[in-house]
Design a binder for these strands. Structure first.
Lengths: 233, 233
DNA sequence: ACAAAAGTGTTGCGGCTACACCCATGC
DNA sequence: GCATGGGTGTAGCCGCAACACTTTTGT
C-alpha cells in the first residue's frame, strides 16, 4: 500500500451500551476503569479499535475483553465525534448497543487489566460516567424506548420463559408509564408470536401464572416484509 | 496533553448522501473524483476529517468544499468500518444524510481540486460508485424510505409551494408503489400541517391545482411529544 | 369538443382505549 | 378466610383501504 493517506493523530474507539433486566430492574453493564484518564470512574465498556479489525469485530472483542461476555448481538448505535470528548487527544468513538438476558452470566470477569471489574448497574440513579458516556447512554436509552414500540426487543431481555405480567412490567419500566393489563395481553397475544407453554410459574405465594415463550420463527414469518426493510440500516 | 494515547495509522472520513428531487426524479449528489484512488470515478462527496473539528462540523465543511453548498441540515446515518474499505489504508467513514430542495442551486462548484465536478444524478440507474459508496447509498435510501412513513421529510425535497399531486408522486417514487389519490389527500390534509394557499399552479395545460405549503410551526405543535423523543438519536 | 389532471365521499374492517370483576393459590 | 396477583369481554372511536365519477382548464 502506498503511503498516500494523510496522517493525523486520531484514533477510534468503541463504547458499548449493554442493557439487561434483573430483579425487576433495567440495568446496564459498566466497568470500573483501571487506567487514566478517568481512572476509578465508572464507564461504559469501551476501548480502542485495532487497525486490522472491522469496527463490528472490534466491538465484540473489546466487550469480551472487558467483561468476559462472548459474541453479543450488538448493533451500531451512533458515532460521537466532538473534538474534546477525550482529554488526551482526538478519539472518535462508535457506540454499540445490545439487549441481553442477564441470567447465568453473573460472573463478569474482565480479561484485560484496563477494567478493575465489570458489573450490572440499574439504569435508575446512574452516577456520572467517564468521558461523554452519560450522553451515549442517554442516546441509547432513547433508541431502546423508541424501538420497543415496533420491534420485539423485550424478549432479548427477559428469561426464555416468562409470564405476561413480567413482559408488561418490562414494557412499563422502559416506557416509564402504566399500561392497561387487558389491552396489553390482548395485543400481545393477538400478534401470534407468543407460544403458551403448559408449564406454570413456580414458587410464588399466589396463583401461578402461565409461562410463555417468544417464537422468533413465527415472528419472522409474520413480519417478513418489515424485516426485509430493516436489513442493513 | 500527555502522549499516552496509542498510535495507529487510522483516519476518519465523512461521506454524504444528499437527496434532492428534480424533474420528477429522486436524485443524489455525486462528485467525479480527481484523486487516487478511484480517480475519475463517481463517488459520494466525502473527505477526511481534520483533527480539530467535530465530525458534524467536518461533514459540513467537506460538503461545502466539494460542492459549494452551505450549511445543509445533515444528520449522521451510520459508520462504516470494514478493514479494507479503503485501498490505501485504514479509513473509517461516518456517513451523513440530508434531504434538500434542489431549486436554484444548479451551479455546483467544487472549491477544492479533489473533485472535478459535482452534480445531481438520478437514483435510478446509479453507476458503480467508488469505495463502498454504493452500499452507503443503499443504507441511506432504506433509511429515507422508512423515515418517510413517520417524519415529514418529503417537504425538505419539494419546492416551498407544491400541489398535492406533486407530494403524492414524491411519496410514490420514494416508496416505489402507487398510492390511492383520495386516501392520500384525505390523510395529508387531516394532519392539519398543510397550509392551503390562495395561489394556483401556473403554466399547465390542464386544470390548475391548488398550491400548499408545509407549516412546520403547526407540525411542531401537533407532534411535540414525538419530537421530544427524537431529540438526540 | 376533447384531453388531461383536479377534486371529491362512503362503507367496512381492524386496532386502540377505557373500564371492573371473579378466580386460583399459598399462607 | 384473606391477601395477592391471574385472568377475562365489551363498546365506542378512529384511522385505513377500497373504490369511480364529475369538474375545470387549456388547446
Amino acid at each position: 500500500m502506498e503511503a498516500t493517506l494523510p496522517k493525523f493523530d486520531s484514533i477510534f474507539s468503541i463504547d458499548c451500551v449493554i442493557f439487561g433486566f434483573e430483579a425487576g430492574e433495567l440495568k446496564i453493564l459498566l466497568i470500573e476503569r483501571n487506567e487514566e484518564p478517568f481512572k476509578d470512574w465508572l464507564a461504559l465498556p469501551g476501548y480502542f479499535v485495532e487497525q486490522n479489525e472491522s469496527i463490528d469485530d472490534g466491538a465484540k472483542r473489546i466487550l469480551h475483553e472487558l467483561t468476559g461476555l462472548h459474541n453479543l448481538p450488538i448493533k451500531q448505535l451512533h458515532t460521537f465525534g466532538e473534538v474534546n470528548r477525550h482529554p488526551q487527544g482526538r478519539v472518535i468513538t462508535v457506540a454499540y448497543l445490545a439487549l441481553i438476558r442477564i441470567m447465568g452470566q453473573k460472573e463478569l470477569t474482565p480479561i484485560t487489566h484496563y477494567a478493575k471489574k465489570a458489573f450490572w448497574h440499574p439504569v435508575k440513579d446512574l452516577p456520572k460516567l467517564a468521558f461523554d458516556h452519560t450522553e451515549i447512554f442517554q442516546t441509547a436509552f432513547r433508541r431502546v424506548r423508541k424501538r420497543l414500540n415496533y420491534q420485539p426487543i423485550a424478549f432479548d431481555l427477559l428469561p426464555e420463559k416468562f409470564t405476561l405480567t413480567q413482559l408488561q412490567s418490562l414494557y412499563e419500566i422502559i416506557l416509564d408509564k402504566k399500561l392497561d393489563k387487558r389491552n396489553f395481553r390482548k395485543k400481545m397475544l393477538s400478534y401470534g408470536f407468543l407460544k403458551e407453554l403448559s408449564e406454570k410459574q413456580k414458587g410464588v405465594s399466589y396463583r401461578a401464572a402461565k409461562l410463555y415463550k417468544f417464537d422468533r420463527r413465527k415472528y419472522n414469518k409474520i413480519f417478513q416484509a418489515e424485516l426485509a426493510m430493516e436489513g442493513g440500516s
